[in-house]
Amino acid sequence: MTANVIGIAIIDILLFTFLVITAIAIVRVRNLFAVAMLAGVFSLLSAGLFVTLDAMDVAFTEAAVGAGISTVLMLGTLALTVREEKPPSHSVFLPLLVCLVTGAALIYGTLDMPPFGAADNPIQTHVAPEYLQRTPEEIGIPNVVAAVLASYRGFDTMGEVFVVFAALVGVLLLLGASHPKRDDDVADREKE
């Protein structure tokens, strides 16, 4: 058991170290192609952290959406614009100060947090035990996440699906349904 805990701690430290290095690289590098790829790496490392937290569904989503599709879409956007970030036209000290103050405030906030993983944390004593208890009886499926997502919180999930759909509508309105020339190409092919 202790060996297991130490192993997870080592993996966590490694993942967080790489995460910080990746974040610093994203800020420093000016080549946007490299930035897009590093953002994918950042997502993949986050997915690894979710796995060590036993949040498989979240890790899965992060790896597929964050590291996969987002990277492809970013590269697609990149092909429409320039490849190099412009050097900042103003001093970087004010943004740095804002970041440091915000970060310090957030870290100060964590001092009040209950101990990580404790059994009497609010997250363990509010609705979570109820869902864990009710899912086998009422829904009869082992994946409680799916039960909460699609049944207990089905209305929220429907909202999410419509948000995804709205994102497509927004992009199509901005970029146009498809390239006019390509449309003709497709129409020509359909005739053949």
Partner: peptide, 24 residues
């Protein structure tokens, strides 16, 4: 409902990709 979710997400992701890539 999960089938509906899968259908929407798959087609939206693919449409987004085509929308960006076909302009390149």
């Amino acid at each position: 409902v999960e089938f509906g979710v899968g259908m929407t997400v798959a087609s939206v992701m693919l449409s987004l990709f085509i929308a960006f890539a076909s302009h390149n």
